[in-house]
Amino acid sequence: MALQKYPHRLILENRLEALAQINPWLERGWNEYELPNESLFEVALCIYEATANIIMYAYQVPDGYSKAPEPIARVIEISLILHDDAIEIKIQDDGYDFNPLMTPERKVAQTISEASLSGRGIPLLRGFSDKLSYQRSGGYNQLSIIKSLKVRVASPQ
């Protein structure tokens, strides 16, 4: 069950410049709910990578989707939800069907020439989160990122 009555929420336009709003927004929520500092960096990185992927891919018309209705609002909604032993980040966008978790695992390169220059965002998201889930519902992509907290979160007054 979520601890706070209303989630801490951020609405972003689907452009890369909007990513700069994530850290200040997250820090405000972190301070408000007195969350442990050691998790802030990792959660910020998860949100950043997931949102950057949405901006780069979810609004590109996929192959074979020429007749799909175009996204209207083109906004991304990010919510921070407190649970008693974890925090959950929900990211919802109105782009085309885009499941970031379908990205295949990347092979770890051993030399500079083998190293890939793309496809690093989702491995980071997997590496720093404890549970990821995706669903398509009502015309929205909905991604849930769970990060366990080592200490219990105090209930906000």
Binding site: A52, I112, S118, G121
Partner: peptide, 19 residues
């Protein structure tokens, strides 16, 4: 203080050019 996949991409690209 913060690094994302975009930052790592730039490091790897530069390393490839140097290499």
């Amino acid at each position: 203080v913060f690094i994302t996949s975009q930052g790592i991409r730039i490091l790897m690209m530069t390393a490839k050019i140097a290499n």
